[in-house]
């Protein structure tokens, strides 16, 4: 039950993109088309889950026993950067078009604040190992949900008659704002 609450909380109530406003860069950058955005969400979910697991191990097995907790940001960055590098190699191997579609946003997962946020929050909330993995995974699912909804809306928006001055970035920001507003409805559920 506890794990389920963590899942619901990270996906809906405390959605990383739409409630905490972390990871906005790929959220706006890769949400032009449904396909790549779903892949981006999956890549981010993978990195988040792995980062949560590895960060937890490093924090509780290396940093905490040696009183090195001040190193947590640096070591988490190291973990995330390595994982992103791995994902990049993996995607390049299995799907070159996807690699091209994700473009610069793939390496940018490295500095995606949503992932860093996951690593820092799990220490902050003192989750145990299993909880951390579930937390990382559900944060990723929440990110995927947000980016896929956004991509769906933006694909429809291509056909809409948007006023000249709102075309491009402005209408995207407005849509993101409306989505955040909608997700506010989940607040207080848990």
């Amino acid at each position: 039950m506890e794990l389920f609450v963590i899942f619901l909380s990270a996906v809906f109530v405390n959605n990383y993109v739409l409630s905490k406003f972390l990871g906005i860069c790929p959220f706006v950058g890769v949400s032009k088309k449904l396909g790549p955005s779903l892949s981006m969400g999956m890549a981010t979910t993978f990195v988040m889950t792995m980062a949560a697991a590895v960060s937890w191990l490093i924090y509780y097995n290396i940093l905490l026993p040696n009183n090195l907790t001040f190193l947590k940001i640096v070591s988490f960055i190291l973990v995330i950067a390595s994982l992103v590098q791995f994902v990049e190699m993996f995607i390049k191997k299995i799907s070159k078009p996807l690699y091209n579609a994700l473009g610069i946003y793939l390496p940018l997962i490295t500095t995606n604040c949503a992932i860093m946020g996951v690593a820092l929050f799990l220490v902050d909330k003192q989750y145990n190992f299993v909880e951390s993995i579930i937390f990382g995974f559900s944060a990723g699912v929440g990110f995927t949900l947000a980016i896929v909804i956004m991509a769906g809306i933006r694909e429809k928006l291509e056909l809409a008659d948007v006023p000249e001055y709102f075309k491009g970035a402005p209408i995207t920001m407005i849509v993101a704002g409306c989505l955040a507003l909608a997700f506010m409805g989940f607040a207080g559920m848990i």
Partner: peptide, 26 residues
């Protein structure tokens, strides 16, 4: 201790990445 542990973590990851790079080379 800080230098060693950071170095150790870094080294571990770089070794893993090197292996992955060999395996996943396009």
């Amino acid at each position: 201790l800080a230098a060693l542990s950071m170095g150790g973590i870094g080294l571990t990851f770089s070794i893993l990445l090197t292996i992955a790079n060999q395996k996943l080379k396009v």
